[in-house]
Design a binder for these strands. Structure first.
Lengths: 174, 174
DNA sequence: GCATGTGAATAGGTTCACAGCC
DNA sequence: GGCTGTGAACCTATTCACATGC
């Protein structure tokens, strides 16, 4: 069954956070929307640092949805000497040497980790040490960070493999 | 609790597909690895078409893990006239006009959809019509395709929002 | 003795059915 | 009457404990 979103499911999920509608009447959509934005924590601006200015980092940086959805990139870090000092959109690429002071100075809360696997763990640890609160991780490793720090993994190879598995499971197609 | 992978869990999962070890002895790692590759369907080469040659598409195309993990990009499609005809790595970018014949002619099995949301549904339908078997979807919409076609969604904004939620839930950090 | 494989117990999450309130 | 909110039923997935075979 493909993730059909049922009415009962939505009501149950909402009930986990409170009661938002009026029986027999329905929901005030805009009000509900605002309440949900509060609950999700997307009713404010989040300060993001991009660690890794390679292809993925560049694609993300240009991705308009981030800024428009409340995620502001306030720092770009990369270890490539050819990149350090150059600008993306008026934002200067900085060396990882300054990671901690950058994060602390700018009040960075989230980190997008788009560096090679071998560098990811160290960068993550230093970012956590500097006080960030969450990590969006593109490196194909399981980061070891304190449990208080949420990590979201993006693993595109795994997702392709999930497709391969689903296709293989249901037998060769017609 | 952060996704701790337990021994019992692994055994239970394996048991779903068969019996691979010897009691009291353990698993032959390389043999197990091959069996699992078969089950996952990653023991062969998959032919992939990249639809959308923007920033994300470009990042993916250059991503070495794909090729090395058995996913071969055999076609790039984009509607931008400035891109059509140019080459990425000896692969010519083609117009979506030829989508169906390209897919059929090259035996494309998987599609990576990295086009703007407004174009995604149409491209998906045409790709399915042409016989592809699965979609890795970067467009932030729920594609409507036959249930026999598995879809994996990549939604980076949602993953950032998941971080925002997790952080907000556990109360402002120390 | 030791590590796998598996039924039983448990936990977690979804679906159902209806009570409660407009 | 209609739509929300929710306890109960149900179903799936994880954890446990041990039987099984080397």
């Amino acid at each position: 069954m493909r993730g059909r979103t049922t009415a009962a499911q939505v009501r149950k999920d909402l009930s986990h956070f409170g009661s938002f509608g009026k029986r027999g009447l329905g929901y005030k959509v805009e009000e509900l929307r605002q309440r949900l934005r509060q609950i999700l924590g997307v009713d404010r601006l989040w300060k993001v640092a991009l660690i890794g200015a390679g292809r993925i980092g560049s694609a993300l940086f240009e991705y308009p949805a981030f800024e428009s959805r409340g995620y502001e990139c306030v720092a770009i870090i990369d270890s490539d000497p050819d990149k350090i000092g150059t600008n993306w959109n008026n934002l200067q690429i900085r060396s990882p040497d300054h990671l901690e002071s950058l994060i602390r100075g700018l009040g960075v809360e989230l980190v997008i980790l788009a560096v090679p696997a071998r560098a990811a763990q160290e960068m993550a640890e230093r970012a956590v040490e500097a006080g960030i609160e969450g990590i969006l991780n593109f490196a194909p490793i399981r980061l070891k960070v304190p449990t208080r720090i949420p990590v979201e993994d993006v693993n595109l190879v795994m997702q392709l493999e999930a497709l391969s598995f689903a296709i293989t499971q249901r037998g060769p197609a017609a």
